[in-house]
């Protein structure tokens, strides 16, 4: 095989066939590459569909890469909606000049993440963009899953006094990508939290007090808090001391002036539960490998108001809505 992607890899001929047969098909469980469309079987339930494009720069970062990240991103959107993800479709946009070895590694990582999440890539497409018209490798994935209808019930079911939980430390993904991108001369041990959250969401689905789940990606935990407050027209209070943030992430944030509450996570869940079931949800998460550092971090207010952060010293400050994205292209 060649060393670099050329425009010929997108021309429909021999090189394109080789690209698909030698790189994509083996990594993705050998779907039928001859058919124009794939038949799929779906179990009983409400069919859920989502789609997402991935452009993260750089393509590889501590704790992940764009291949695995794309699967996690789509699988997690289905998972927090209460669905069990089943199928994926993949569109790959590859810039001319991309190293074949890198592409092979990214696609292998994508395939591995899909297998681990129990989803099959059933259809796909590749395009090659002329040099300078793309950013290396972009993936766009559509995901299909099935859930019990109306579970979880969603934002409108949230009531004053409900509790907010987060499944683990926030901000690691944003910092890991930024450190991989910028040469700050910082040697951190921050790794992206990118992972499938399916075990975490499945663990909460049996709880009747579960109202709502969301993965705090772009805009981070603070943005999810705002989305909830805005939808409910209720205030919301977060306990700063309860919010898990890794020391290494906190240290980099302090140095560079970022707030971890606004930085993306790719393997965390924010959940809202009835107060009487918050402890049960916490225990369920803490028993799972990805949930050991889960915490109850806040309460839905009884009246309209801002998102307020209670500081460890007993003070409080309003947590404003994210104004400008400090870190573009993190997913």
């Amino acid at each position: 095989m060649d060393e670099m992607i050329t425009l010929a890899h997108g021309n429909g001929g021999r090189r394109m066939r080789a690209l698909i047969e030698e790189i994509f098909a083996p990594a993705l469980g050998r779907p039928d590459t001859q058919a124009d469309a794939a038949p799929i079987a779906l179990p009983e339930g409400e069919i859920m569909v989502t789609t997402d494009g991935f452009t993260v720069q750089p393509a590889r970062f501590p704790g992940g890469d764009i291949g695995a990240l794309s699967v996690h991103g789509v699988v997690n959107d289905l998972a927090v909606s209460g669905a069990t993800p089943l199928y994926l479709t993949l569109a790959a946009l590859i810039e001319e000049g991309t190293s074949i070895a890198l592409l092979r590694e990214l696609v292998a990582s994508l395939g591995k993440a899909a297998r681990e999440a129990g989803v099959r890539v059933v259809a796909g497409d590749t395009k090659v963009l002329p040099r300078g018209q793309g950013g290396g490798v972009y993936f766009t994935l559509t995901g299909l899953g099935v859930r019990t209808p109306g579970c979880p019930p969603g934002l409108s079911a949230i009531r004053p006094g409900d509790k907010l939980l987060v499944s683990g430390p926030v901000g690691d993904h944003g910092i890991a990508v930024m450190l991989a991108r910028e040469d700050f001369g910082l040697r951190g041990d921050v790794r992206s939290d990118a992972a499938t959250v399916l075990p975490l969401t499945l663990a909460l689905l049996p709880l009747p007090g579960l109202r709502f789940m969301r993965d705090p990606t772009r805009g981070g935990l603070a943005t999810v808090a705002h989305e909830i407050a805005l939808a409910l027209k209720l205030g919301l209070e977060l306990e700063e001391a309860a919010i898990p943030v890794r020391e290494s992430t906190q240290a980099v944030c302090a140095m560079l002036g970022y707030d971890p509450l606004y930085l993306a996570c790719e393997g965390r869940v924010v959940a809202v539960l009835a107060p009487e079931e918050a402890e049960a949800a916490l225990a369920a998460w803490q028993a799972l490998p990805g949930g050991a550092e889960a915490a109850i971090i806040g309460t839905i207010g009884a009246a309209p108001g801002p998102v307020v952060l209670r500081t460890p010293i007993g003070g409080s400050r309003v947590l404003p809505e994210l104004e400008e994205d400090a870190l573009p292209r993190i997913c």
């Binding site: 460890p312 010293i313 003070g315 409080s316 400050r317």
Partner: peptide, 9 residues
């Protein structure tokens, strides 16, 4: 001190 909310305490 603003981040800590010191003025309020």
């Amino acid at each position: 001190l603003t981040q800590l909310g010191l003025r309020g305490v």
